[in-house]
Design a protein around this nucleic acid. Structure first.
Length: 971
RNA sequence: GCUGAAGUGGUGGAAUUGGUAGACACGUUGGACUUAAAAUCCAAUGUCCCUUGGGACGUACGGGUUCAAGUCCCGUCUUCAGUACCA
């Protein structure tokens, strides 16, 4: 009876599904363990062998934890809203829901055939209204909340309203918009409802604001910063421009400090934490205000304006420039100021003399795209405004320049330039011949700026002289505060996240507008379902696709979505009759994926009047192990942390972080194959014959190449897609075969190196696929796939099978295990257990191979050995393990079996094969008893004939004996 | 530039605490079985020298610590990933 993997795998996959073997219980005496894979987007192309890598690793861990007595939650679902289905809909008119459904079916079939132990009773799809109902609900909660910096948490908006009506907003310490106007409680109570709503919007965590966004005209939508790579859209590589639009935003910046601090409490890789730290970009320093010196021209101008407009309030007021600096200690080193060309003060302070130059410069910079500016960081450019600021301490005039190395979007869009301490300021000063005062004691700045904060004292700086960075900064801030011209400040790079997308295939907002003010729809009327549209494109007037929906207005009397006609004359504010227009934007991709891990905590059949029951949330808490790609570092993984912190603040969940431990699996790369066409001919020469001939390398499908890099020419010629191209081609062989060239590249369709798991499962089985993916190398590392190598692990499974089964059936019997049998088994238990705990799955596979090789050599047939061995193997190769387990007479699934206990006594050795080294080089080995004393070892070794031969008459200077380890003879 | 990871045979990789470098596989070569192929099994396989025994060299490069370094320390180079005029 041989190993028929196809039958075996289908059989057990059906058994697991029929018996709901992997269904997790929400109440259990066992400790809980939550293993999660990153949410897959079901794309039309299906899975290639790179995708399941992380799923296999997490599945091994989940199965292992079950053997170890844990109640394991290991769910799976689909992030099923997204662009590709919508693009397909635009092209074909097919509703994205249909495309999505088809793709999900393919995904499910592919996942099932690999034998994952998912609990499908908890499946989640973000595009399912029963799911996005709660995404909408969370959005409403964010809208109904503000962030109190005093309590350092989000609170219900009612508490803010209460404060406003009793004390105004002067003492409110909240995360809010920058342009807040102050009001008293009397003023607040006197405001109209609309005025109050507008003010509250400046405090809400989900807020509507006119923001400058990244608009991608080709995609017809805005993109978040993390969706843009090198100035073009991540998806499709389309150009992106800045545009002002009214958009929903999330006040994630309120959580910047907690997102940063929280990183210290979670077990993620350093590189991932570092990415998030950089993205949050905390810098500690000071905000400093510089007064602009009024020149006579400016004064004249102001007076002139006053005369015309006949009011004189402005004449007393001079302009001020606010900057953020991380080096308040260098304030005496300021020799100029630089404003971003877009800075609003530029036009106001530029002198008539300089007007022409400044305007020319602004025009030139505006023309340069964002991309050019990024690509070209070396060219120094700028213009002098003719204006001067006043140094807060010396009162000396400081020239004000503009330069595009200062970014309008960071800080205040203005810097105090300290050329001796900042290389960019230094380069700018050199280029424009601005003086570079040195304020560092004993430092040479003739060649470059001195940017370090360490081991230096400040000089030429009045009251800061002789102080180090820390003390000087503190003192400078103290003095600036006394002058009212500065304050200590912490700045974060993290920007609020734009939450609106001008797309169809996403969550609709539960929002309607009354007189332009957004109103939330009550929880009991959710979900607000996506309306039908006849086309998935923006409208002719530039509104998002939902603008095409005919039934997309909210009837506040009947609480339902109704025809736009009832809203009367096109979104008029007068004749609404209680019917108002609904929001036309949809939510971004990260909305649904920011909380899905909570939804899994409840089985679909039990999901009721909450996004998850309190009991379920209390039991499962958060994800213990999360496996996925590092590309989500500053997107999904940051947004999820933000939402979870918010939900904790408002009491909806009781954890501060969603993912306790996170592992990034490395990418699986493809091994491309090339044939070489001689220039201008239809002749292809084998790789070894190229030499210096002119050839063009052409990708060929990897399935026509065998393990020895030989091309199956006939197969290639008969290929449905490319056969024609090669039909009449001549192939010049070497040694009777055509050798292809090979190169490791990213796995992609266009490189013809994509390997489909379906084909692998068909030919070698899921267990071989699972073992091979792990065998390739460490989980976190990028590594090339080469199908040829799979014969190694496949051969191992056949050998394993033969250890249990021969032509006469089951070989396993009740024979008493030998000492060797026990030794092999127990060292394997120890190694596999350690490997899984350390996520070193590749080395376990080798260990299994060694064990099977040893058992085979030992002719082991003992059930007492071979039965527990199957449990060790079952997380990796569950089908064959389950089959043999039942063949041994077990009636229940192996997945419920207890992991074998390691017993060290079987590994105790009576002797050790000592390596005998001379000057650190091993020359021979010597078998000696374990309990031999140090002196006896030395004596025995020194008396050995090989030692005498090695020494060749010399007397050793020293003999090192480490009992149980090594002997080293020096001299 | 900065941050992080990594450089070991023809290839993927192993060596978890400083203690026999190259486990386990792929590939290659030779052999057995077969009409043949596939499958299977056996043997060899870091490089170089030499007749067996053996010897020299060897973990990106240059130093160092140590009886002993792939592993620890200092410096250099290269590759990959992320990020980038962030004041």
């Amino acid at each position: 009876m041989s190993y028929h993997f196809n039958e075996i795998e289908a059989k057990w996959q059906k058994y697991w599904a029929d018996n709901q073997t992997f269904k997790a219980a929400n109440n259990s005496k066992k400790p809980k363990y939550y293993v999660l894979d990153m949410f897959p987007y079901p794309s039309g192309a299906g899975l290639h062998v790179g995708h399941p890598l992380g799923y296999i690793a997490s599945d091994i861990y989940a199965r292992y934890k079950r053997h170890k007595g844990f109640n394991v939650l290991h769910p799976q679902g689909y992030d099923s809203f997204g662009l590709p289905a919508e693009q397909y809909a635009i092209q074909t008119g097919q509703h994205p829901a249909i495309t999505t459904e088809t793709n999900i079916k393919t995904y499910r079939r592919q996942l099932d055939q690999i034998g994952f132990s998912f609990d499908w009773s908890r499946e989640v799809r973000t595009s399912n209204p029963e799911y996005y109902k709660w995404t909408q609900w969370i959005f409403i909660q964010l809208f109904e909340s503000w962030y109190n910096n005093d309590t350092n948490q989000a609170e219900a908006i009612e508490t803010l309203i209460l404060k406003f009506s009793s004390e105004g907003n002067a003492h409110i310490n909240a995360a809010c918009d920058d342009d807040i106007t102050m009001f008293s409680s009397e003023e607040w109570n006197g405001f109209s409802s609309k005025e109050q709503q507008d003010i509250l919007l400046q405090y809400r965590l989900a807020y509507l604001a006119e923001t400058e966004v990244n608009w991608c005209p080709t995609l017809g939508t805005v993109l978040a910063n993390d969706e843009i790579v090198n100035g073009v859209s991540e998806r499709g590589g389309h150009p992106v421009m800045r545009k002002k639009m009214t958009q929903w935003s999330m006040r994630i910046s309120a959580y910047a400090e907690r997102l940063l601090q929280g990183l210290d409490t979670i077990d993620w890789t350093d590189s991932l934490k570092e990415s998030q730290r950089n993205w949050i970009g905390k810098s500690v320093g000071a905000s400093v205000t510089f007064k602009v010196k009024m020149t006579s021209e400016m004064l004249k101008q102001v007076q002139h304006d006053d005369n015309e407009e006949c009011h004189s309030e402005q004449s007393e007021e001079s302009h001020q420039i606010e900057v953020f600096t991380t080096r308040p200690d260098t304030i005496f080193g300021v020799s100029f100021m630089t404003l971003a060309p877009e800075h609003e003060l530029v036009s106001k302070i530029t002198t008539p003399d300089q007007k022409e130059a400044v305007e020319a410069y602004i025009t030139a910079t505006a023309k340069r795209s964002e991309r050019d500016r990024m690509a070209d960081v070396k060219t120094i450019s700028g213009a002098f405004t003719g204006a001067y600021a006043e140094h807060p301490f010396t009162k000396e005039p400081i020239p004000i320049w503009i330069g595009d190395y200062v970014l309008a979007g960071y800080g205040t869009g203005a810097v105090m330039s300290v050329p001796c301490g900042d290389q960019r300021d230094y380069d700018f000063a050199k280029h424009f011949n601005i003086q570079i005062p040195n304020i560092f004691e004993g430092v040479d700045i003739s060649e470059e700026a001195f940017a370090s904060k360490d081991n230096v004292k400040i000089s030429n700086s009045d009251f800061l002289n002789g102080l180090n960075y820390k003390k000087a900064s503190k003192t400078a801030i103290y003095e600036l505060e006394k002058l009212g011209q500065g304050v200590g400040k912490t700045n974060y790079r993290l920007r609020d996240a734009v939450f609106s997308r001008q797309r169809y295939w996403g969550e609709p907002f539960p929002v309607y507008y009354v007189n332009g003010a957004p109103q939330m729809i009550a929880k009991e009327h959710l979900p607000i379902r996506l309306p039908e549209v006849e086309k998935y494109l923006p409208t002719e007037t530039g509104e998002p696709p939902l603008g095409r929906a005919d039934v997309w207005a909210w009837d506040t009397k009947n609480n339902k979505v109704v025809s736009n006609d009832l809203c009367h004359s096109e979104r008029s504010e007068e004749s609404h009759n209680g019917v108002y227009p609904l929001e036309l934007n949809t939510m971004p991709g990260w909305a649904g994926s920011s909380w899905y891990f909570f939804r899994y905590m409840e089985e679909a059949a039990n999901r009721g009047e909450d996004f998850a029951s309190e009991e379920a949330l209390n039991y499962w808490e958060n994800v213990d192990l999360y496996i996925g790609g590092s590309e989500h570092a500053t997107g999904h993984l940051l947004y999820s942390r933000f939402w979870v912190k918010f939900m904790k603040d408002r009491g909806f969940v009781n954890v501060e972080e969603p993912f306790k431990k996170l592992i990034n699996q490395g990418m699986i790369l493809g091994t491309s194959a090339f044939v070489y066409r001689q220039d201008g001919t239809n002749t292809y020469i084998s790789e070894g014959l190229i030499k210096d001939k002119n050839v063009v390398a052409i990708h060929v499908k990897v399935q026509y190449v065998n393990a020895s890099d030989e091309l199956d020419i006939e197969g290639l010629k008969q290929d449905g897609e490319f056969g024609e191209d090669f039909k009449d081609a001549e192939f010049i062989l070497e040694d009777g075969v055509y050798k292809v060239g090979r190169e490791v590249e990213k796995m992609s369709k266009s490189k013809y190196n994509v390997v489909n798991p379906d084909a692998i499962c068909e030919q070698y089985g899921a267990d071989s696929l699972r073992l091979y993916e792990m065998f390739l190398g460490p989980l976190e590392q990028a590594k090339p796939w080469n199908t040829a190598g799979i014969t190694g692990v496949h051969g191992f499974l056949k050998k394993l099978w033969k250890l249990y089964i021969d032509d006469n059936g089951l070989k396993v019997n009740d024979a008493e295990p030998t000492a060797d049998n026990l030794k092999t088994l127990h060292k394997t238990i120890k190694k596999v257990e350690d490997d899984i705990e350390n996520f070193s799955f590749n080395t376990s596979v080798s260990t299994f191979m060694i064990a099977v090789n040893e058992f085979t050599a030992q002719k082991c047939t003992s059930k007492a050995i071979l039965e527990p061995f199957l449990i060790l193997l079952s997380p990796y190769a569950p089908h064959i393990a389950e089959e043999l387990w039942h063949k041994l007479g077990n009636a229940t699934s192996i997945s419920t079996a207890t992991f074998p206990e390691f017993e060290g006594k079987y590994l105790v050795e009576s002797s050790k094969n000592y390596p005998i080294s001379f000057n650190g080089k091993m020359r021979f080995t010597l078998e000696l008893p374990m309990d031999m004393s140090k002196d006896d070892i030395e004596k025995t070794v020194m008396a050995h004939e090989k030692t005498i031969a090695q020494l060749d008459g010399r007397t050793p200077k020293k003999v090192i004996v480490v009992p149980g380890k090594i002997v080293n003879i020096v001299g």
